[in-house]
Design a protein around this nucleic acid. Sequence first.
DNA 1: TAATATTTTTAGTTTTGCCTAAAAATTTAA
DNA 2: TTAAATTTTTAGGCAAAACTAAAAATATTA
Lengths: 217, 217
Amino acid sequence: MTTSEENYLKVIYHLSNLSPKGVNTNAIAGMLDTKASSVTDMLKKLSDKELVDYQKYQGVFLTEKGKLNAKMIVRNHRLWEVFLVEKLGFAWDEVHEVAEELEHIRSEKLINQLDKFLNYPSFDPHGDPIPNAKGEIQNIDKQLLSEIDVNKTITCIGVKDTSVDFLQYLNKQQISLGTKIKVLEKEAFDGTIKIEINSSILVISDKIANNLYVKTH
Amino acid sequence: MTTSEENYLKVIYHLSNLSPKGVNTNAIAGMLDTKASSVTDMLKKLSDKELVDYQKYQGVFLTEKGKLNAKMIVRNHRLWEVFLVEKLGFAWDEVHEVAEELEHIRSEKLINQLDKFLNYPSFDPHGDPIPNAKGEIQNIDKQLLSEIDVNKTITCIGVKDTSVDFLQYLNKQQISLGTKIKVLEKEAFDGTIKIEINSSILVISDKIANNLYVKTH
DNA sequence: TAATATTTTTAGTTTTGCCTAAAAATTTAA
DNA sequence: TTAAATTTTTAGGCAAAACTAAAAATATTA
Ligand SMILES: [Mn+2]
Ligand SMILES: [Mn+2]
Ligand SMILES: [Mn+2]
Ligand SMILES: [Mn+2]
């Protein structure tokens, strides 16, 4: 498989979770920053290789084979992100771009030894689950911060938006995975939330609250 | 730079050391397992980018810019090889292929942090020197085993041929970097050498002796 | 339901990196 | 020094992965 084919598979995999009745050509184009016509070309190729089920105008689905391949790329991506943060001292907002390249290195031994070296981590630096060598994913209960009731104290366990801008905003506010947050007040009008972190008070917008995954104790 | 351009630069760099009066088109084609006509195409492109000095029919030279780029790719390659052996438990005959892919990951921070993580190694698992971040290479005195006089004891510090076949032959004979070898007898007729390793006796061909780098004590 | 808007596909190009076959230049050998 | 062999370049093509523009299908809305 080429790097391009792998990138398409991965995007279709991520989009499948959101739109289970077939992934749209335009949605794929948007994620890959390419044109719809290029996507159509690639869907034909992936279909020939039996990595996707594709009927024109009807959206696309991953086959089992396609899904397993996609999971392995996600596995590579997330393991490399762990490596970069844990071993090479990268910040969580610096790893994505490099992992986008590293994920395409093709070597079973490499990735399985890396997994072992990292002590078989279950989650990446953004709190996303890492598929194991069989493609199995350990999902855990998580809620958005926006769903938490006033006066509850929760722990930050992941981010929904993994953009550099959002991650750097969190850095500035001293919010990272493991940070304990107490919900003090919720403003019904605009969804703004007042929270307490390390005994300092902070007001965050609904957009922030809708992109932070937390777990109750 | 593309992966293909990088591979050409690296090959020209390695061949330059052997033929300092210009690298031949055919030699490059041989190393890259491609055709001479493809090499000519690429030489024009590299010349446009001022990475090589090229005049047709006259062989090719790296410019300073080209040489520095080539050294950085070699640096990447060799650092990744150290990582694979030291951290992931690869054998020295298993690393080359994967390093061929890893060397093209483009990130200054990645490679410099990897260098630090590995404790700034000077040599790779095959005894080849690793250029530092400035492109400087620490060369050390070495001789071929074939050049060593009878009765001298020396230490194996590198291999000239890094092919899987040769490395696996050395594995079988329990020869690795650091192995002490005593030269017992040299056969003038065919260059065969009788040596002692860990108090066991072994006869090796001239081909082997011409591909093992050693240092005297 | 018919008209309009949106999405998707097709048709035709471009660029990169490779190929084969043939021509040109250089090297080797008689 | 000319003829033959070898090396290198040119010319013309191909496949992958992108693009633009136009056509076709589907979805929306009046
Ligand atoms: Mn990422
Ligand atoms: Mn991640
Ligand atoms: Mn190597
Ligand atoms: Mn090496």
